[in-house]
């Protein structure tokens, strides 16, 4: 083997990974680039560079209303789903109790059910009880499908906790409540934060279930879906890109802070 082929075969997996990441990021780069496009109506062909879309992200009709709804729904759904899911995760991760397998199935089922089935069945129920779909029905639906993901994430964190840490706290004169407050909760907290972030992104990004249960309330994904058929305004790209950047910064900062807190040099 000559030098070049040896280098190639040794780095094959890395080359592959680079291509893989390029594939993952191509549409995001495209979205970002076209957020600077000086398009008038449909943002399909590159016309020219402009910062106008970024200066005026609410320029397209209804886009900021939809975004506002999505953010409000995301925050509310994350709040409730994180609380309910974390409580369940502690029960699952810390206690032996009867009916465990039934609870396990109930947590697993929403993750194994296609979104369209959940969306459709919830709508069926809301209609048959005379509920008009709207803002709160979206929140309810989002909490429902986020709970399972929160449980799984937090439970994994609890399971990875060394039980000796809590025993050490009890040994050092901390009663059950103090042990939870000083040791258990601070150590599980990163898992809860990760679960909340996951819940928010699931809620913010959801289209299928939302579309069934939203009535005439607009959300950002719904806005994209509807306007995609007659050409997406560049403002949608601006919002998508900035959401992406904000989330990326939050995660990277969180990682940095976490590393500092853990004391890694």
């Amino acid at each position: 083997m000559n030098k070049a082929t040896r280098w190639f075969s040794r780095n094959l997996i890395r080359i592959y990974a680079v291509i893989g990441f390029a594939y993952l990021f191509l549409p995001i780069v495209y979205t970002f680039v076209f957020s600077f496009n000086d398009s008038k109506k449909s943002n399909l062909v590159w016309v020219g560079f402009t910062l106008n879309n970024w200066k005026n992200p609410c320029g397209a009709p209804d886009v900021c209303n939809a975004l506002g709804n999505s953010l409000k729904i995301g925050v509310l759904a994350t709040f409730f789903a994180t609380i309910l899911g974390t409580l369940m995760a502690f029960a699952m991760g810390r206690y032996a109790f009867k009916g465990r397998s039934v609870v396990n199935i109930l947590i697993f089922l929403p993750m194994a059910t296609p979104e369209i089935v959940m969306g459709a069945s919830l709508l069926t129920m809301f209609i048959s009880f005379g509920f008009n779909p709207g803002f709160w029905t979206i929140v309810i639906a989002h909490v429902m499908f986020c709970i399972s993901f929160v449980v799984v994430t937090v439970k994994a964190r609890i399971a990875s906790l060394d039980p000796r840490l809590e025993q050490a706290a009890m040994d050092l004169y901390a009663d059950e409540r103090e042990t939870f407050r000083r040791i258990t909760f601070p150590l599980v907290a990163p898992g809860i934060a990760a679960a909340a972030l996951l819940a928010f992104s699931l809620s913010f990004d959801d289209f299928i279930i939302t579309n069934f249960n939203s009535g005439d309330v607009n959300t950002f994904p719904k806005f994209v879906y509807i306007s995609a058929q007659r050409g997406l305004p560049a403002q949608a790209n601006v919002i998508g890109s900035s959401m992406f950047l904000i989330a990326l910064i939050i995660v990277l900062v969180g990682q940095f802070v976490g590393r500092k807190r853990a004391g890694v040099r």
């Binding site: 979205t31 076209f34 994904p221 879906y225």
Partner: peptide, 29 residues
């Protein structure tokens, strides 16, 4: 850790936006 974040990162950009982006990347224009 950075690469791990990059794997999750596409989630942060709306699922529909990315699909629309593919539609336009591969589309007639």
């Amino acid at each position: 850790n950075t690469l791990l974040v990059l794997i999750v990162a596409p989630f942060f950009c709306s699922f529909l936006l990315r699909t629309v982006a593919w539609e336009q990347i591969l589309g007639e224009q």
